[in-house]
Amino acid sequence: MESLGELLKSWPAGQSLTEQAERKLAELMREPLIGKLLDKYPDLNEDVLRLNLNRVYQYVTEYRNCSNCPGLDQCPNDYEGHYTLLSSETVNGLTQLYDRKVSCKKYLARQTEDAIRSRIRSFYVDDSALRRGYSSDEILTTDLERAKAVGQVLRYIDRTKDSGLQEEGLYLAGRFGTGKTFLMCYLLQELAKAGYSGVIVYMPDFVEDLKALMHEPGKLKETVEMMKETDLLIFDDIGAENLNPWVRDHVLGAILNYRMERKPTFYTSNYDLDALERHFSFTSKDGDELHKGQRLMDRVRPYVEVVMVTGENKRGRK
């Protein structure tokens, strides 16, 4: 932003800086904003404003900039997303004018968005659904066939906001493209606004990476600990991964064993719970291991509310 000094120097030659400053002060005194300032602080007068001309000029200029805001990224003020606010105080007969920088609404909104985003981690999940905000009405009316499922998710969000983290999570089951991941991203966004941290993991890609992490024990431990400790953990498209015994028993088993009765875990799947148990009971290495599949499901089934998500397949729809 151009300073008052730069402005005065650019005025026509032949006028002293004092004359130029007096003309600028007279112009500023005609500003309604300055009239309001004088009404608020009766001890203020032209002499005080003259001594603080640079502050007054910046105050008026930044107010004009904000009134015609071009957006936060193009903010013309000295400090992006901030404007100057003036106040006055009279002590022992001496009136002083003070300025301070105040955050604008757009800047505060961005800070809030950044704070929300910082609470959510995603692994292999397209974060476009995490970035966009949706209203509950929009969620409900996008597909009326899934209204019952949406109602369950919204009630869960309200319960958590009212009474804190629940012991149970949600298990969203349904066919392809009905918006299960979308609903879980909405849940993460809404509860992140309430201060909860969350992680969403796309299981097929995550399981393949876990196999590589076997050779990086430090990184593996850090990943597992994060999934144990996050407030909200979502396993997206569980059942579509290619399991091996180590991932099932030592990674998923460890995470779920820690979280049960502590923090809620959420799932989206094309399988119902019985079909998921059959999936967990078979690995390409050891074949059928029914008791190990049942053992893992004992850490899933009692700790979820099942939500059947119906509706049309939205993938590829324009």
Rank of each mutant, 00 (worst) to 15 (best):
28 L>M: 08
100 R>N: 12
39 D>R: 12
206 F>Y: 11
24 K>C: 15
272 D>H: 01
21 A>K: 13
185 C>H: 15
315 R>E: 11
38 L>G: 08
39 D>I: 05
285 K>R: 12
105 K>W: 08
15 Q>A: 14
226 M>L: 15
85 L>S: 15
296 L>V: 04
176 F>P: 02
194 A>Y: 03
75 C>E: 06
307 V>Q: 11
62 E>A: 01
43 D>T: 13
119 R>A: 07
137 D>S: 14
74 Q>K: 15
133 G>W: 09
148 K>P: 00
200 I>H: 08
73 D>F: 05
308 M>N: 11
183 L>P: 06
237 D>H: 12
241 E>W: 00
304 V>S: 01
250 H>G: 04
88 S>H: 10
183 L>G: 05
211 K>R: 07
125 V>Y: 05
280 F>V: 11
118 S>G: 10
27 E>K: 12
258 Y>V: 06
5 G>R: 13
76 P>S: 01
182 F>V: 03
254 A>L: 07
194 A>D: 13
97 L>Y: 04
76 P>N: 01
108 L>F: 03
137 D>N: 12
94 L>V: 15
7 L>E: 05
128 S>C: 13
306 V>P: 06
21 A>G: 14
118 S>D: 15
281 S>C: 07
60 V>Q: 02
32 P>G: 05
105 K>P: 07
53 L>R: 11
198 G>L: 02
222 E>Y: 01
162 D>K: 13
88 S>P: 05
198 G>A: 05
130 L>M: 13
127 D>Q: 14
117 R>H: 11
72 L>Q: 02
66 C>H: 07
210 L>T: 02
1 M>E: 13
45 N>P: 11
223 T>R: 04
312 E>D: 03
100 R>T: 14
6 E>W: 05
317 R>G: 06
25 L>F: 12
221 K>I: 00
273 L>F: 11
133 G>T: 10
18 T>M: 07
93 G>Q: 07
16 S>N: 07
187 L>I: 09
117 R>S: 15
184 M>Q: 10
228 K>Y: 08
60 V>K: 01
285 K>S: 10
312 E>A: 03
261 E>P: 04
207 V>G: 01
145 E>T: 02
294 Q>W: 12
